[in-house]
Structures are given as C-alpha cells and as structure tokens.
C-alpha cells in the first residue's frame, strides 16, 4: 500500500545515509493551504478521572520475566540479582545497560501497537559500541567523555552533545532522536539511544514515556484531524505518579525544528483527561506533538484523539 509521507524513506546527508523520521499524512494535507497552515493552542481543561496505573503496558519479548514496572530501581535491582557482579565477567555498567534495554524494549513494543516505529538500545559506546540505524555515540574512553563533560551523539544531520550524566534531544529538520548518558567509569560508560523512525498518528493505546535512572525522554507523535478544520479539539489523557508540569509542543510536519506553539500543562497525580483546543490558519495542519514530562516522574500517555 502506498501512502503520503512528509519525508522520503531514505536520504543522504553529509556523505552518510539518513533514514528520516517520517509521518504519514492525510490526503487533505496535500492541498497547498494545508501544508502551509499554522496553529496555536488554547487553554486546556484538565480533569482527574482515575488513579495512576501501569496496566496495559507492554513487556519486553526477550525477557518476559522482567518486572512489569516503570520503576528504574526495581528493574536494576532485578538485573543485579540475575547477574551478580561477583562473577568476574559481569561488570557494573552492564546492569544499567540491561535495565535500560528492558525499558527501551517495552516502549518499542508499545509504540508498535500504534502501527509505528520507535527504535532504541543501550550499551557501552566505547566497547562494544552503540548504534541505532544511522545514529551512534562516538566511541571514546569514559574518562575522555567525563573530563569533557559530554558524550557525542552523531547523526547524519549533525552532532548532539549529551551531558555526563544527562540527556539531550536531537531535533533536526527531518530527524527526531534522543540520547542519555547514565554513568561513566574509567574506560566504560553507559548510554541510551532512541530514534523515532515512523511517527504514530493519534495513538489510541497506552504509551509510557521512556525513563532511565530518572531521566525522562519525550514522546513524539502526529496530531491529525480527519478533515481540514480551523479548530480542532485534542482530547488526551496522561497518567502520572506525582503532580508535574508536562511541556507540550506542536512542531511543523515540514521541519521538526519549527515550533508552532508550546504549552505547559499542570497535571495532578493520577489519570488526567485533558481537552485542548487548537486553532489554525487557514486550517489546523497535521503536526508533530512533542510531550516532555518532568525527570523523576513516571508518566504514561493513555490516548490522544482529535475532533474532527
């Protein structure tokens, strides 16, 4: 089946092959007035409709016995238990990388439920090395990275400096990526890479926000109405284990760096149902929504729907 996308399946950048982050577009977005359209958000209306829960989240297929929780402490404790460090071939960074891979794997499965593709991995970028599709961390000694204060996430569109420890998003015209450095020893360090390959459209099922040692990654997906309209109502729900402020940005489908609007939404603990009016000119375009929760919180996007 053939559909319309905002970017090609494959491109070249700086002598390298690039697999852009692509979004499926509705037919009406092909009209000139739609592809040029802009949008602003109105005031959200928020209601707590239930308690925080992690029901309905996915488990990693390679480790069905992994604890079904988003709690980093529980996952890493389990990893230390099944592979204790007293074995000479197990070293400390592997537990963090393993725990991060469990988180990445479950989030990849949830994103796939929405018919799309999020890719990720965690490892030591020095040896054995860490890459995901066309993204990679520069393989350097941990002490080099720690002294400098950042690891280098290399993409065909440019590099992103990721603090040690810390996180950084790589937002380029046609590429959405995220990297984190969890720790650095002398030789080895642990990093995480995420890449959104094909964006989900109006996800109807639960997607948790990946979180590693308290560092929360954003989620990206497409807001798309069924027909072109000057006003949309985004109805969505976010569950959180503690009160927090979530940053929500609408980004242009033509260039992800182009932020159309930004909104900060205060959520209470529990399941928050949000109604957010979005106004467009001449219509509300299909656009990429970025949602960034606070670090240290467990956050789940329950659903995102659009009227009309």
């Amino acid at each position: 089946m053939i559909r319309n996308y905002n970017f090609p399946f494959k491109a070249a950048a700086a002598g390298r092959i690039l697999y852009p982050t692509v979004a499926k577009l509705p037919e009406w977005m092909l009209r000139p007035q739609s592809r040029l359209a802009v949008a602003l958000s109105g005031e959200p209306e928020i209601k707590v409709v239930g308690p925080y829960s992690e029901d309905g989240l996915e488990a990693p297929p390679e480790s069905p016995d992994a604890p079904s929780t988003m709690d980093w402490g529980t996952i890493i404790s389990w990893s230390r238990k099944i592979a204790p460090i007293d074995d000479p071939s197990i070293v400390e960074w592997m537990h963090s990388a393993h725990a991060a891979n469990i988180v990445v794997s479950a989030r990849m499965e949830e994103y796939k439920r929405s018919g799309s593709s999020l890719l990720g991995a965690s490892d030591d970028p020095f040896v054995p090395g860490l890459k995901v599709e066309d993204l990679r961390f520069r393989p350097e000694l941990a002490e080099t990275v720690a002294e400098r204060g950042y690891g280098i996430l290399e993409t065909p569109r440019g590099n992103v400096n990721v603090p040690v420890p810390g996180k950084a998003a790589g937002i380029f015209k046609d590429l959405l990526a995220w990297g984190a450095v969890l720790e650095a020893f002398l030789v080895q360090w642990t990093a995480v890479l995420l890449k959104w390959r094909e964006l989900a459209t109006n996800p109807a099922e639960r997607i948790a926000f990946p979180s590693f040692r308290g560092l929360s990654a954003p989620q990206f997906f497409v807001h798309s109405a069924t027909i072109p309209a000057p006003v949309n109502l985004a109805q969505f729900s976010v569950s959180t284990d503690r009160p927090q402020v979530v940053t929500l940005r609408g980004r242009s489908i033509n260039d992800y760096r182009d932020v159309l609007f930004e909104n900060r939404i205060s959520l209470a603990e529990g399941q928050n149902a949000v109604d957010l009016p979005i106004f467009g000119f001449p219509v509300v375009p299909a656009m990429v929504i970025e949602m960034q929760p606070e670090d240290g919180a467990k956050t789940v996007l329950d659903y995102w729907s659009v009227i009309p």
Partner: peptide, 16 residues
Amino acid sequence: PKYSAVRYFEDLVAPV
C-alpha cells in the same frame, strides 16, 4: 517563502 516549495513523498507504508 520557506514552505511553499515543500513537497511530500509517496512511499510504501511500513505496516506493523
């Protein structure tokens, strides 16, 4: 001026 030349691409859907 920036987006008036934007074009979109037909491609295979990557169904899950």
